[in-house]
Design a binder for these strands. Sequence first.
DNA 1: ATTTTTTTTTGAACAGTGTTCATTTATTTT
DNA 2: AAAATAAATGAACACTGTTCAAAAAAAAAT
Lengths: 207, 207
Amino acid sequence: MGIAERKEREKEELRERILVAAKNLFLEKGVEKTSIRNIADLIEYSPGSIYHYFKDKNEIFHVLHQGGFQQLMGRMEVLESVSNPMERLKGMGSIYVQFALENPDMYDLMFIKDAPILHVSNSNEEQWKEGFGTFNFLRATIQECIQTGHFRGHEEEALSFLVWSTVHGMVSLRIRRRCEVVLAQRQDTIVKDGLNEFFNILDRLSS
Amino acid sequence: MGIAERKEREKEELRERILVAAKNLFLEKGVEKTSIRNIADLIEYSPGSIYHYFKDKNEIFHVLHQGGFQQLMGRMEVLESVSNPMERLKGMGSIYVQFALENPDMYDLMFIKDAPILHVSNSNEEQWKEGFGTFNFLRATIQECIQTGHFRGHEEEALSFLVWSTVHGMVSLRIRRRCEVVLAQRQDTIVKDGLNEFFNILDRLSS
DNA sequence: ATTTTTTTTTGAACAGTGTTCATTTATTTT
DNA sequence: AAAATAAATGAACACTGTTCAAAAAAAAAT
């Protein structure tokens, strides 16, 4: 009988509708300022219904959080055809920054917001493979750079963290509006300019 | 008559007590999860009273926020005796990172949390001189480095932003627990190790 | 010393929050 | 058509930031 399957499908549909509504509201007003009632209003269901599909607000956040990593990883895939590891490294930087600036709220959710990440790491660590994957891709690339003679005298893991920190630092200062006061005139280009300075530095370390 | 003065003093004292209580609670439970009632309970006053000393919760946050910048600037002052600009630059990095790791919640308040910063920049821009000052100190130092032959081919403002971003990136990834999953074994040393890699890079750019 | 004025403090009230759960409504199976 | 199952509801609970008329306390004036 296909009834059970249809019901399953309908359940999944409503679950998806909740996620879409939550995502829109989260990105529009922020996680904190989005209430379960707001989400319920948007999908025209009662607040209580949402708790039949998600344990709590954190779980909704968590699912969207994971989706972000899959998106970012997806963008990185085009780099697998770039054989030169230094070029690939720079490509990763560009894609990372572009992703962050194009999806500032999603980036915020993924790398800046702190609320429900503890809940995540406490529960299912399997679900972190996505975030794990992106960083491991960076590490593998830097390892290749070292193997081909770049970054002499540097330690791979710490250097990978440093590179990640540099791009994260720029975009997070931008996203959290710390440039506005201190670099008012140059707000729109400062991240791109900073990234270029960074690429210059990377090139100098090659020789 | 000294009565008015005594009253003024008492008012200032209660204001200070509110700030101390708020700071403790903010750093302990976070700004968001600290309620006005929590603060009122701690100082044994009614919730309404607090609104006679501060316009709203944001103003309390704002005053503490400013205090953080003054603290950080204070720590930087010892570097004014360091004449070599490259050494001074590295000293700034060390002090910045140390401040952040020793006062993670205050750092969070100053550079990561986003809630009330708009309110700040909209209101009194005078009050931002502290944050302005720290960054300008960095810029001045890097300018000196350039004048003494370092960082050839780099642009001062963008490079300053990049340097700030690098240290901010490391400490903010640490504070917001993004190292836990990805660098579990090395959590406690990764920021120090990353900073050393950064110092190595800076030294290489000197020659 | 008593009354008036000013200052300070209160706590109830408002509109909002996340979450729970007995009850109602809708659907499927018998 | 009746019984059983599944899904959705919305009132209720304990919380949130904030406001404001009223009460209490303190100071000033009489």
